[in-house]
Design a protein around this nucleic acid. Structure first.
Lengths: 149, 149
DNA sequence: TTTAATGCAAAAGATTTGCAACATG
DNA sequence: CATGTTGCAAATCTTTTGCATTAAA
């Protein structure tokens, strides 16, 4: 799923604000790398982001993509998703959503569900750290893998 | 946390049954590799499992550990956990539990919570595949990373 | 102008694979 | 005995790092 133009612009505005607050420089590379993740509804890995940015900015390097993605993660603008059997993937959709993950092929499907959006967090978790988000991960076997036996 | 002897034996019995059903050979290596994951309450990565098994079985090789862990995942005896910024880790605890994950260092803490154990799964998810488990993942920043600024 | 960020190339790490020898059912 | 599994070594793939150059504030 591709994200709407308006929403992408909102995310980029937010990105610029956060960069300023965090005191990190707003470079062309960072802007394009963030844009790439923000406009993709998928959960791209570093290589995929690199390929996408490259189309618009042929001189960008893969290591800058890595460095930038982790920086964006550190300031909380994107987050990582650990997909089974795959490289680390990144997601700029920070709003409430949940995941179905196939344990065989690692395929991941986003879904929304009001009934899962306001879960009660046990108090003990507050002693672990500062909570930022909560989501549900449903694991199983996707139809494709199931039919393939 | 280390798992009790009785529970480990129960898991190993289950492991033997599943191997027979799946038609895979029950080798010493597989038994020891499964035992290692089953008795560790942690979420070890392949290297850690390798080090543990090695103590009892010095000739085991790392690639056998990898092959076996993925095999165990494929038959559903263990599952993977994608920890942020870390290698793939494995978990033999298939019962209800949830995770707090630090987005900076990848530290992961298990916790139990009755209030999160029987979540209502939206119908749409059944169209994605066969559901096997549901758990809640809470993300944030652990105290150590927060104090380190 | 000062400092941080980039690109390059090389290093480091993690995971997988081909194959001959071996163990299991 | 037939077949699947192991260990080894090498290959592959992913991610990170050092450093000189360049660009942002």
């Amino acid at each position: 799923m591709k994200i709407g133009k308006r929403e992408v612009e909102r995310r980029i505005q937010h990105f610029q604000d956060v960069c300023k607050d965090a005191g990190v420089k707003l470079t062309h590379q960072r802007l394009e790398i963030f844009r790439e993740v923000a406009q993709t509804g998928d959960h791209p890995d570093a290589e995929k982001v690199f390929q996408g940015v490259r189309k618009r900015m042929p001189t960008v390097s893969l290591d800058t993509v890595y460095r930038t993605l982790w920086m964006l993660n550190d300031v909380g603008l994107i987050r990582t998703i650990g997909a089974s059997r795959e490289r680390t993937r990144f997601d700029a959709n920070l709003s409430d959503h949940h995941h179905f993950v196939c344990r065989k092929c690692g395929k991941m499907i986003d879904f929304a569900a009001d009934s899962l959006d306001d879960l009660h967090t046990p108090d003990v978790v507050n002693t672990y750290g500062l909570i930022e988000s909560t989501h549900v991960e449903i694991r199983g076997v996707c139809h494709k893998c199931a039919s393939r036996q």
